[in-house]
Design a protein around this nucleic acid. Sequence first.
RNA 1: GAGUCGGUAGCUCAGUCGGUAGAGCAACGCCCUUUUAAGGCGUGGGUCCUGGGUUCGAGUCCCAGCCGACUCACCA
Length: 500
Amino acid sequence: MSEEVSLFDQRLEKLAKLRELGADPYAIERFEQSGTAAEILDAFQENKDVKFAGRLVSFRLMGKAAFGHLSDGDDKIQAYFKADDLGELGWEVVKLLDIGDHVGVEGYLFVTKTGERSIHVRTLAPLSKALHALPLGKEKDGERWYSLSDTEVRYRHRHLDLIANPEARAMLLNRMRIVAAVRRFMDRRGYLEVETPLLQLEAGGAAARPFITHYNAYDIEVKLRISLELYLKRIICGDVPKVYEIGRVFRNEGVSNRHNPEFTLLEFYEAYANLEDMMALVEEMFRSVAQDVFGSTKVVTDGVEIDFGPAWPRVDLLSSICEKAGVSEDAFGSLDSLKSALGGGVVVNPVNGKEINLAKEHNLGGLIEKLLEVFVEETLIQPTFIVGYPIETSPLAKKDPNRPGFTRRFEGYVRGREVCNAFSEINDPLDQRERFADQLAQREAGDDEAHVMDEDFLFALESGMPPTGGCGIGIDRMAMMLTGADSLREIMLFPMMRPD
RNA sequence: GAGUCGGUAGCUCAGUCGGUAGAGCAACGCCCUUUUAAGGCGUGGGUCCUGGGUUCGAGUCCCAGCCGACUCACCA
């Protein structure tokens, strides 16, 4: 018999004994408390009666007395169990406790010899039994021993991570607070939160391959959404002028540090607004969320201070490439002129070693974005807007009337990474139909991530959409940036894992 | 998809040149009524990721595979 089974069996026996003693942990439904651990310690008064419940995270049995810490997840209080004060039955229960059990205690506050504010327990009630040994390390003065560090176990059994690793816990909880702060911000600004279909006949609004599933009732193939965009704009067409959605989207791609097949996207659209309005809103949102969650507009991650206080510089995309890649502005006339200006063959950025194989670049806009990626992106540490994206890679963004081949689109960058993508939306249905047609052509040329024609969306546009500004923000990446997480998986509760 | 590193007790890890599988913590038993990485004495606990191979003998060497981390690629 393996150790795990016998350990489990030992715990089951303890559970049975507790039940015999009339202390069935699973029989109790509620336990009223005087407050959280922090609240109780804040309002500490010697001899004051308190009730508190939490998980037993440490336990020291010494003959006829015992000490243990009860954690409410965030903070903990030491409990002192003394045989004389608990009675025979109570003491029997104490001896059956294990680290990991939830326990409710009632008693009075006191200070131990060593100065720790504690609860002198008069009565206790087991509220759950930990049937598995929990990987709770020992701790002193902030140092910890023997905790849980195996990333695989941490991700697969996230509850253990939340119990055992305070840093991981703080990061994940901050992510939730960031989402809540974003929602508050949008609500305050008068945006209405909406919900649009996850199951769609054609997944549009982004360049990505969808997940495909089957709907039994209609016996049809449906796809999981890859973005929120097209349905949200259909709501704008219905004259609901300010809408947003925070929702899960699904892209059938690989897993990495910065990618998960399902992730959380925020998109918002505002009628009668344009990309400048979106920039102002993004600036304010980051400022507000940083202030809300971290109490400051300045966030330090990896020793780098990012300040969301000031306005973000607006930098023209082509100028940024000219500066960082050393290409002159007049080289951007055509794909061929740009290629020859780059010298042909393979272009290498000596700073980071990233390269572009020019032979694989078949359109001007695609190459321009590639240059941005290889030469510019990682230099954008402080919040920056890059403005003016090529039309080929922006099939939903309004054309810039003053610059043929470019659109009224921008992206925001922080810590060298893209954090948002926004534009003045196309509201000319004829233009949009042409763009879809171009995408369709690319699709037929073998690009299986190009957009498909969406007639229902076009019908809505044809019914009239006011000029509209729209923006998309990857919430997970935003959380990474704000918390300093170096992997997307650290700020998602349950990242995708291969079945073990 | 490629490369690198890793997978040994519940947890964190060690394991030399190929020679019967180790430590701390956790668990179990005994002692201990203000401890806090409590302490003392004692005990039990292993699919060494899986499957092949080499060898008298494999945790260790070789091959294939699985899972993970990291880097790159893919990917907004």
